[in-house]
C-alpha cells in the first residue's frame, strides 16, 4: 500500500492557505454585529508528513482557534485547508457528510484538560471505544481487543479497562485521551496544549509517550503550546504566532540560536530557565497584548516592539525567506541582530 507519494520524507500532508477566522461580536437586543474578534488572520503554512510542527504563542494569539478550524470544529471565514488523501490534496472545507466523517479518521486531537476531555460517566473502555463505534469499525469481543491494544500502546494497564476516569491521575487520564485519539489510526494528530495542565514530573512522561508514538506509528503532529521549552523540545519546525498572525517560522534548532523576529526574541528571553549555564539578557515587553477585535495597523507587534520604526505602524510586513527554511514577517529582518539563548556547555 505504501507509495512514495504519501509517505515520502518531504511530502506535504497538510497545507493551510490564507486561513482567516473572525468571530462576530453581537451587541444589544437585536444582536447586531458590532465588530469582529480577528482570531486567525491570513495564516499560511504547510506540515510535512511525519514531522512535528510546533505552534507557540501567548493567550489570544489564535493557536487554539487555528487548530479547531483545521479540524472543522469552527467554519473558517476565508482561506483553504488542503489535506493529502490517497495522494491527492483535497480541500477539506468542501467536504460534507460521509466524506467529512471519513476525513475525521485521519485527523484527531488531544486536549489540554485531562478532566474535561473524558466523560466522567463512562468507563475507559467506553471512552476509547467511542470513535470505533461511531465509525462502525469493530464491535463485541474485537472491540475489546482493540481497546486493550490501545491501552497497552499508551502504557496503561489493560485490566483497568472497566474503571471510570476518576480512578486515574492527571497523567494517566491524558494517556486515555491519547489512546482515544489514536483509536482511528489517524495520520495527523493535533496536540492542543497536551501537557500544560499536568504536574511537572508527569509532563515529561507524556512528552516521551508522544515522541515514542510518533516513532512507532509514523504520526504527524501539530503541537500547540504556550510553553516554549516544551515546544522547542518536541518540534522539528516551529511557528510563532502573535495576535492571529504568524510572525516567524523556523526549524527548532534555529529558533533559540537565531531568532529573527523581535517578538520571538522577547519570548525566548521571557522563558524562565532552570539552567544556570544558560545566559541571556532579559527583554521585558512593555504593555499588554492588544485586543484582537481591534488590532493595531501595520505590523501588529509594533506597539510593543523596541525596534519599531515608522514603517512598522503603516505597512503590514511581508514574508521574508532568511534561508535554511527560516521565514519571518518583519520589516527590519535584515537590519537587526537579535539575541537568542547561548549555552555555555
Amino acid at each position: 500500500m505504501k507509495t512514495d507519494m504519501t509517505d515520502g520524507n518531504d511530502t506535504v500532508i497538510l497545507e493551510i492557505k490564507n486561513l482567516t477566522k473572525h468571530f462576530p461580536i453581537y451587541r444589544g437586543f437585536l444582536r447586531r454585529i458590532v465588530g469582529n474578534v480577528q482570531a486567525v488572520n491570513n495564516v499560511s503554512f504547510s506540515v510535512k508528513s511525519g514531522e512535528t510542527l510546533g505552534i507557540v504563542g501567548e493567550s489570544g494569539c489564535g493557536k487554539t482557534t487555528l487548530a479547531r478550524v483545521i479540524l472543522r470544529a469552527y467554519e473558517a471565514t476565508s482561506g483553504e485547508v488542503l489535506y493529502r488523501q490517497n495522494g491527492e490534496m483535497i480541500n477539506i472545507f468542501s467536504l460534507k457528510g460521509q466524506e467529512l466523517k471519513k476525513l475525521r479518521r485521519d485527523m484527531q486531537i488531544i486536549f489540554q484538560d485531562p478532566f474535561s476531555s473524558l466523560n466522567p460517566r463512562k468507563t475507559v473502555m467506553e471512552i476509547i471505544a467511542e470513535p470505533l463505534r461511531i465509525h462502525g469499525i469493530s464491535r463485541g469481543q474485537e472491540l475489546k481487543l482493540r481497546v486493550g491494544e490501545l491501552l497497552e500502546l499508551v502504557g496503561l494497564n489493560v485490566k483497568h479497562m472497566n474503571r471510570y476516569p476518576n480512578a486515574f491521575s492527571g497523567g494517566q487520564r491524558q494517556r486515555i485521551g491519547i489512546a482515544r485519539a489514536l483509536a482511528l489510526r489517524p495520520k495527523l494528530v493535533i496536540c492542543d496544549e497536551p501537557v500544560s495542565a499536568l504536574d511537572v514530573s508527569v509532563q515529561a512522561q507524556v512528552i516521551n509517550l508522544l515522541e515514542d508514538l510518533q516513532n512507532e506509528l509514523g504520526l504527524t503532529y501539530l503541537f500547540i503550546a504556550h510553553d516554549l521549552s516544551v515546544v522547542e523540545h518536541i518540534s522539528d519546525r516551529i511557528v510563532v504566532m502573535y495576535l492571529g498572525s504568524i510572525v516567524e517560522m523556523v526549524p527548532a534548532q534555529e529558533l533559540y540560536k537565531n531568532p529573527k523576529h523581535p517578538y520571538t526574541e522577547a519570548l525566548l528571553s521571557a522563558v524562565p530557565s532552570i539552567d544556570p549555564n544558560t545566559h541571556k539578557t532579559r527583554i521585558i515587553l512593555p504593555g499588554e497584548i492588544p485586543n484582537p477585535s481591534d488590532p493595531p495597523p501595520g505590523c501588529k507587534f509594533h506597539t510593543r516592539c523596541r525596534y519599531a520604526r515608522e514603517i512598522c505602524s503603516k505597512e503590514t510586513p511581508k514574508w521574508r525567506d532568511m534561508g535554511n527554511d527560516h521565514y519571518v514577517a518583519c520589516h527590519l529582518a535584515d537590519q537587526l541582530t537579535l539575541q537568542g539563548i547561548t549555552n555555555n556547555l
Binding site: 479540524l71 470544529a73 467529512l100 466523517k101 475525521r104 479518521r105 485527523m107 484527531q108 486531537i109 486536549f111 489540554q112 484538560d113 474535561s116 476531555s117 473524558l118 466523560n119 471512552i127 467511542e130 470513535p131 461511531i134 465509525h135 485521551g177 482515544r180 482511528l184
Partner: peptide, 17 residues
C-alpha cells in the same frame, strides 16, 4: 463546552449520537 463533547464531534459523531 466540555472537551469530551468536542472529542466525540471530532471523531465524527452525529448530533443524535
Amino acid at each position: 463546552e466540555e472537551d469530551f463533547i468536542m472529542a466525540a464531534r471530532l471523531a465524527g459523531a452525529s448530533d443524535g449520537w
